[in-house]
């Protein structure tokens, strides 16, 4: 893995920064969650590919796996080959849908239940739990979407929604709501995403042919690891600096 050592920057004057950086960070996180959710939800289309080609990634970002994912994705997008849309669609079908019995039925099935139920089935306990979690936030899967609720895309999107709540609470200056929302994020992240997505992301490169999805896997697992640190820091911070928000 091509990684550079993490940059160590000492803690800067918190009070000055907090006010401007905090909402920006939450917005970034929400965007990343939505972006990853989009990549898992359906195949890449022309519009997305074009826009992704216009994106630039913080390839030197301190979280090794995340950085390596950014670099790999960047490299892919700079040189995506003859027919990237077909390549990516074929890879998506193979990796996430197990199309045609590829790999003799082994695939990185993007459902929490598959990774957490002893029988490796979809629609087991984990699915019921995330449904409950969504509904406790007043959310539900849209009717049109025909996948179980514990699909990785929906779990990521749920985190994005929670980030959205934080953002709104910040804007209102409602510190209590910020803390609740952060606690919810931490809870969902540790109980659900971190409980299975690392294993899921480890399965992706076993099935994937394109660097694109291998990069997405790195990006996801690296980012979730970073998220754990971010959320914890934010909770500590909010608790320690009552006026910080």
């Amino acid at each position: 893995m091509n990684t550079s050592p993490p940059i160590r920057i000492g803690r800067l004057g918190k009070d000055v920064e907090a006010k401007s950086e905090y909402p920006a960070l939450v917005a970034n996180r929400e965007n990343l969650y939505r972006f990853l959710a989009r990549l898992y939800k359906v195949e890449v289309d022309q519009a997305l590919l074009e826009r992704m080609m216009g994106m630039s990634f913080p390839e030197d970002c301190g979280e090794e796996e995340l950085a390596s994912g950014y670099r790999m994705l960047g490299a892919y997008l700079r040189c995506p080959g003859q027919d990237p849309l077909t390549d990516l669609a074929v890879d998506y079908a193979k990796v996430f849908l197990g199309a045609g019995g590829a790999k003799n039925g082994f695939a990185a099935f993007p459902y929490e239940s598959v990774y957490t139920s002893p029988e490796r089935l979809i629609m087991q306990e984990a699915r019921d739990q995330v449904v409950a979690a969504y509904r406790s936030e007043g959310l539900d899967k849209v009717e049109a979407l025909d996948v179980p609720e514990d699909h990785v895309a929906l779990e990521l999107e749920f985190m994005a929604c929670l980030c959205g709540e934080t953002r709104a609470a910040l804007a209102r200056g409602d510190r209590g709501a910020v803390l609740v929302s952060l606690a919810n994020q931490k809870d969902f992240l540790t109980r659900h995403l971190l409980n299975w997505v690392p294993a899921f992301c480890a399965d992706i490169p076993k099935c994937a042919d394109t660097d694109f999805y291998k990069a997405v896997a790195k990006l996801t697992s690296g980012y979730l690891r970073l998220e754990q640190a971010i959320i914890e820091e934010q909770i500590d911070d909010s608790a320690a600096h009552p006026d910080g928000v």
Binding site: L25, N28, G54, V142, E157
Partner: peptide
């Protein structure tokens, strides 16, 4: 890593545009 690094690590230029018209998976219950 601290907040500044966090901010840096999560700052992807152009990400908002890429999200564009993607379909929402969750909606009000």
């Amino acid at each position: 890593l601290k907040r500044r690094d966090f901010l840096k690590a999560t700052a992807v230029t152009g990400i908002g545009a890429a999200l564009g018209s993607s379909i929402a998976g969750l909606a009000s219950a």
